[in-house]
Design a protein around this nucleic acid. Sequence first.
RNA 1: GAGCCAUUAGCUCAGCUGGUAGAGCACCGGACUUUUAAUCCGGGUGUCGAAGGUUCGAAUCCUUCAUGGCUCACCA
Length: 492
Amino acid sequence: MNDYSNQLGGEGEEKQARIRSIQAKGKDPYNSSFRPTHSVDDLAQNEGELSENGKKVSIAGRVMALRRHGKAIFADVQDRTGRIQMYVKKDVLGESSFNLFKEIDVGDLVGVEGKVFRTRAGELTVAVEHFDLLSICLNPLPEKWHGLKDVEVRYRRRYLDLIMNEEVRKVFLLRSSVLKSMRDYLEERNFLEVETPMMQVIPGGALARPFKTYHNALGIELFLRVAPELFLKRLIVGGMERVYEINRNFRNEGISVRHNPEFTMLELYQAYGDYLTMMDLCEDMLVNVIDKTTGKTNITYQGMTIDCSPPWKRVSLRDEIAEASGIDIFNDSDVSMKEKARSLGIPCSEEWNRGKIINELLENYVQPHLVNPTFVMDYPVDISPLARATKKNPLIAERFELFIGKEEIGNAYSELNDPFEQKNRFLDQLKKRETGDEEAHLVDEDYLEALEFGMPPTGGLGVGIDRLIMLLTDSSSIREVILFPLLRPRLD
RNA sequence: GAGCCAUUAGCUCAGCUGGUAGAGCACCGGACUUUUAAUCCGGGUGUCGAAGGUUCGAAUCCUUCAUGGCUCACCA
C-alpha cells in the first residue's frame, strides 16, 4: 500500500487519521481505475428500459450529500451531467464493503454499480451492489445549504465553484457552445481558422497599452498582442481570402466588471468585402448563434429585454450625436465642438482631441439608448487609423460598432489597403504618441511592406466574445464568464 | 490610480452605546434498512484579516497595511 504519511498542510492529523482508517479496511484512497457505463443524465433518459430489464449500470462521480441510516445509507452523487441518489444497504454489500462505505465522506469520488429504481418518495435511485472509492476529498466542501457565494473564493478556487454551483457550470457550457456554433457558421462560409503571434515585436491593431516581455535567446523586448489584426491582414495579402481567429488579446489596463487584462476576441477578414458585407455577416452570424445556443430571439440582460430578431437597426454616429447633443462631429470646428461639449458638462481638457470628445459624446449620449442590437456607422477617421475613408468624405471612415444591451459587442471596417495612406495614418499616430498618447499606434514598416504587395479590398470584423457571453448568460461581471479571471495573488 | 463598503468557526452570518465570542449547516461520538436541508442524543472546533494605538479592559473606538466587492478613471 502507498505511504501517505507526508504532511500536506492544514489539519494534517485529521487527514492522516482518515487515510489510515481507510487503509486499515484494505483500501487505497487513490489509484483505482473505474469505467462508468452511464452518466447521470443517461440514467434519467433511459430509466424505463434500464429498470424494466433490471440492467446493471455503473456511474462515477462526487458524493455531494450523505444520509446515514444505520444499516443503510443514501448518498447523492454528482457527475458532469447532474446528480442522482444512491441507496446502499448492508445486506446487499456485505459487512466489509458496507463498513468501507461508512468511511465515505461528502466530497469523495466514488464509482458504483447497481440497478435503477424509484424510491417510495419517487426519487430515481441506484440500488448499489458494488462500489469503489476512486479518490478521497481531504478538505471539507463548502456548506450544502448556503453553498459557495464568496466571489473571491469562487474565482480563486474555481473548481469549488464548479462543484457547488450548477449555474456556473451552465455558463461555461454555453460559452463552449457559442464558440462551437460560431466556428460552425464560419466554416460553412469557407472561413479558415488561423493562429497568429501572441508575442509581437510591434504591438498593433488596436489603440491600447501592451504588456512587455523579453526573449532571452534573441535578446529582444517583445509585446503581448493587443490585437491580431495586422497579422490577419498579412494573410489576406497572402491570398487566404477568408480567415478568422478566436483567441486571447492582452491589454495592460484597468480591471473592472467589463475588463479583464486577457480577453477573447473573434476577428475575421473577408477579401472582396467591406464594412457593409461585415454588417450583414455580423448580424446573420450572431442571430444564428443566439438562436442555436439559447433557442430564443429575445434575451434578458440586467433587467433589459433585448429583441435580437433581425433586421437590426443601423444608425449614423453623427446623426445620433447631433440629435442627442446638438454637436455635429463632422462639421463643427474643434473649438466649437469643445465649447459645446463643455456646456453639456463634459470636462474636456486642452489636450483632448476630436476622437476623445466624440467617444465621450457617444458613451454619454448615445450608448445608454442602445438596448436592442444597433449598428452605429461612420466613425471619424482620426480614431480609426486602419480603416478606409469613405469616397465622399475623407474624414469619415467606413466603420461601424455594434451595441447590444448598451454594451459594445463588435467593431468592423473596410480595411485600408492603400500603403501610402496607411503610412500617413501611422505617422499621424506617431505624432499623437509623441504628445503623450501611449495608446497610439506605432509605425509597422513590415506591415506597410506587405500592403505594398497589394491587399484586396477587405472587410474586417471583431466581436468581443466575453461580452457576448455576458449578454447571453445575464452576467453582470466579465469574471463570471472567464474561468480564471486575473486576481491579485494571495500573499498569505 | 481615487472614493465607499466588507473581512468574526469549514460555510452562511449574528454580536447594540467597549466588559472574557454566538446560531444554523458542516464536522466529531452514539442510535437508526426508502431518506432527501433525514431524524434523535451528546460535543464549539476561533490568531474576530494583519500590525500598532487609546483604555483598567477592544471583535467593537483610532491609525496604517492587506485582500475583496461596488462606483469612478483608463479601455473593449
